Amino acid sequence: MELLSSSKAFGGSQRVYRHDSAACACPMTFAIFLPQQIEDRPVPLLWYLSGLTCSHQNVVDKGEYRAAAAANGIAIICPDTSPRGEGVPDEPDNWQFGSGAGFYLDATQEPYAKNYRMESYIRDELPDLVSQHFSLDMGRQGIFGHSMGGHGAITLGLKNPQRYSSVSAFAPISQPSTAGWSRPALEKYLGSDEAAWRAYDSTLLIADGHRLPDLLVDQGSADGFLQEGLRPWLLEVACAAADIPLELHMRDGYDHSYNFVSTFMAQHIAWHAQRLVTA
């Protein structure tokens, strides 16, 4: 594991690392914020998954999460959104697929199956790696994300309730199997049999019996992707049918940008802290 950068922030340390990933068969980069409390004891861990076209760098630069993470004594890991580099299949002119658009799934279709294994990377490989190098309490993990990353956070949370004690999302893609900007990606990664897509659709996972203890979602009312791509009301219906407590906030006038995410970032971290630190 190679340290690419390190900078002190709020008494802790913001770092970026690169390592060779077996899951993705290429080098992968991730950011990690380590709060000062880690010097005295293992700290809880919160995963943040970014959206389409992003890498770890977007939230590091614009997410404004370090003050809240430091105050609550929580480490935050920001993985990349997809495999990258020479030899990794890509569609450079398609921002909804390939590099920057891994959708946090394990692809089964060629030529993507070798590299696009983001679910295995986030769920298995990266936790194992960081647990060996940092004083993290792996028994207290939460997960959240934005847009495509919100989709990834909820699906990973639903399928791994023993792993993640808290789950939240900013403007998640609530039903990617029917949204115009995600259906084509699911077909290329997973094939034309839509039954295989159910494992990566929050509403369908809930319909199939997967559960969360509760869920926090923030969504901007002025989000340009609200009607066609995000549709939080579908998640609301699914949660209501399954008796999953959903705290859905429609934020008047906010769009899809990091101006929206950063505004409510501290509230999300405090919500996770109630479940990871004080529980």
Rank of each mutant, 00 (worst) to 15 (best):
R117Y: 01
A101Q: 10
S168V: 06
E119L: 14
T155R: 05
F264S: 06
V261H: 07
L4G: 07
E247Y: 07
G150E: 03
F10S: 13
P27S: 10
R198F: 03
P161W: 09
Q227W: 03
Q96T: 09
P89D: 12
I32S: 00
T263I: 08
P92K: 02
P27G: 04
S55V: 09
A107P: 02
M148S: 10
E91R: 11
R84G: 00
S6P: 05
D20G: 03
Q96P: 01
P42R: 15
Y112K: 06
Q132P: 04
D201K: 14
A179T: 11
G102P: 02
L136M: 02
A31G: 05
A25F: 05
G229F: 09
F144V: 05
P176F: 15
D252F: 07
M138N: 01
A222T: 05
S82K: 03
G224T: 08
P232A: 14
I122Y: 03
I269Y: 02
I206A: 01
L212P: 06
L156M: 11
T81L: 07
E187P: 05
P89W: 13
H249R: 11
Q37A: 13
D124E: 14
G220Q: 12
M138I: 04
H256G: 04
W95M: 15
G191R: 05
D20N: 11
D128W: 03
D124N: 12
G220W: 06
A71V: 13
G145V: 15
D255M: 04
L129Q: 07
Q14C: 07
R163P: 00
N160F: 02
L52Y: 01
R275M: 03
L190D: 02
Q141A: 08
F225Y: 15
Q219Y: 14
H210E: 05
A171R: 11
L230F: 08
Q37S: 08
V60M: 11
Y189P: 04
L129T: 07
Q267F: 04
S55N: 06
Q162R: 14
Q141R: 11
A207E: 11
Q109L: 10
W181M: 12
S55K: 08
S166T: 10
G142K: 06
F170I: 08
L235G: 02
G180F: 11
M28T: 13
R198C: 01
F10P: 00
M28I: 11
V261A: 10
P89Q: 14
R198D: 05
A196C: 05
S257P: 10
I74T: 07
R15F: 00
T81M: 04
